[in-house]
Design a protein around this nucleic acid. Structure first.
Lengths: 232, 232
DNA sequence: TGAACGGGTCACAAATCTGTTGCCACCTCC
DNA sequence: GGAGGTGGCAACAGATTTGTGACCCGTTCA
């Protein structure tokens, strides 16, 4: 399910770890020396790096530092493998940087558990590519809204606004919440900005503008069901 | 997993079907007469409707027609339950409109299979809320792009452009493809529009603009890995 | 070698978008 | 009834965005 880069100079360890990872459905890339880690990480962009601290040439801490220094690899979580003999302060140093660490010799089972935990922590959030509420169809892929199959031309602000409202239909979104979500405003500027955009949005939606409701002193909301009336 | 509206006037059938559906993890809403179907469908917006053709008052075909006439329910797939006694031409009529149909008496197992098939067909497409390629982080939820954690202010056109390119990194997107995806142009207007926007995008990305590559006579592409150079 | 082509770049004007201000209507609470 | 608060609405001006035309240069191909 995930792509994992394993870094160790001992082939036995690489094979052991790879075997277990593959058994759990992960894709494994491996590297046997410290200098190749950064290029490999950049090229394959793994979801996680398992990094032995004892490496020929350049040690794991240095490698880790380099990974953190490069914007292209900064975000990749790292699990360190340390020898039990290491002094405590070194381990402390690791703790601050690495997402987790394990002392050798370790049980594959424990490594797998920790890997699972780290991956879960950095799990990807999925969302619906298309969100449908009644006749409204929000296409997040193309960043467009259509009603009954007809594309509605919205500006980026209007799009963000209705996207925010549609994310939780029938739930009140306070002014400050919307101001923050759409405009990034921290403080509640009590100007007419929000009203105006709501008005513009309603106008563009035409008859369907009724789906955007106001709750005085509370905020605005997207009404998933609107009582039928002059459809004629 | 899905919400299913079951329409039948025979309580036994509703219970039987509900039981099996719930056993498969679906949420069931049921209605016993034809007139309540449209309002119920509008209110609950189910993922699928199982509709008996024999209903008191108004028959299933009429109900189906009404569902198709309303933009709020038009998209909901319908599986019809017909009596074996129905004439063939009526079944033919159903075939054109309903997504599937079953003749009574039916085995619950068969109904479940068909329901599974229809649901699978209309399965929702999920996408990553955040897409990361190297230092680029595309946040589809907030419709924004950041590089190394720093927000890049893009116009909607530029955003659509880079979103399209990033959707398939390292793959060439032809001019007409981009023109179609971003501008909705059907014909390849050979103006300088696309170039200009590519240029503007590159400029805004600054040093990272090198990630957008040109392949003469082929198109443009998002390059996931760019050879390191003057990072200084 | 030179014409044709494809893309990069610039400048510009039109179109569009956006936040604000001012005003009004309505509601709520004294 | 009146004051204060809240949101709807219109208008406006500044800012931004957008497409296009002109020009250039490198590549390709005859």
């Amino acid at each position: 399910m995930s792509k994992i880069l394993v870094v160790d100079d001992e082939k036995d360890i690489v094979d052991l770890v790879s075997l277990h990872l593959q058994r759990e459905g992960h894709e494994v890339v491996s590297v046997g020396n410290g200098l190749s880690v950064l290029p490999a990480a950049v090229k394959t962009s793994p979801d996680l790096i398992v990094l032995d601290i004892m490496l020929p040439g350049i040690d794991g801490v240095q490698v880790h530092r380099r990974l953190r220094a490069d914007t292209r690899t900064r975000h990749i979580p790292v699990i360190m493998l340390t020898a039990r003999a290491q002094t405590n302060d070194r381990i402390a140093g690791l703790e601050s940087g690495a997402d987790d660490y394990l002392t050798k010799p370790f049980s594959p089972r424990e490594l797998m558990l920790r890997i699972g935990a780290v991956l879960r922590r950095s799990q990807k959030v999925v969302m619906l590519a298309e969100q449908r509420i009644g006749e409204f169809l929000l296409d997040r892929k193309n960043m467009s809204l259509s009603i009954s199959g007809k594309l509605v031309e919205l500006t980026i602000t209007e799009l963000k606004l209705i996207t925010t409202l549609m994310a939780n239909p029938d739930v009140i979104h306070s002014r400050s919440e919307l101001l923050s979500a759409v405009w990034g405003y921290a403080d509640d500027t009590h100007s007419r900005t929000l009203d105006t955009h709501i008005k513009r949005l309603r106008d563009k939606l035409g008859d369907h503008g009724r789906h955007i409701g106001t709750l005085r002193r509370q905020g605005y909301f997207f009404q998933s069901v609107v009582e039928e009336m002059s459809e004629a």
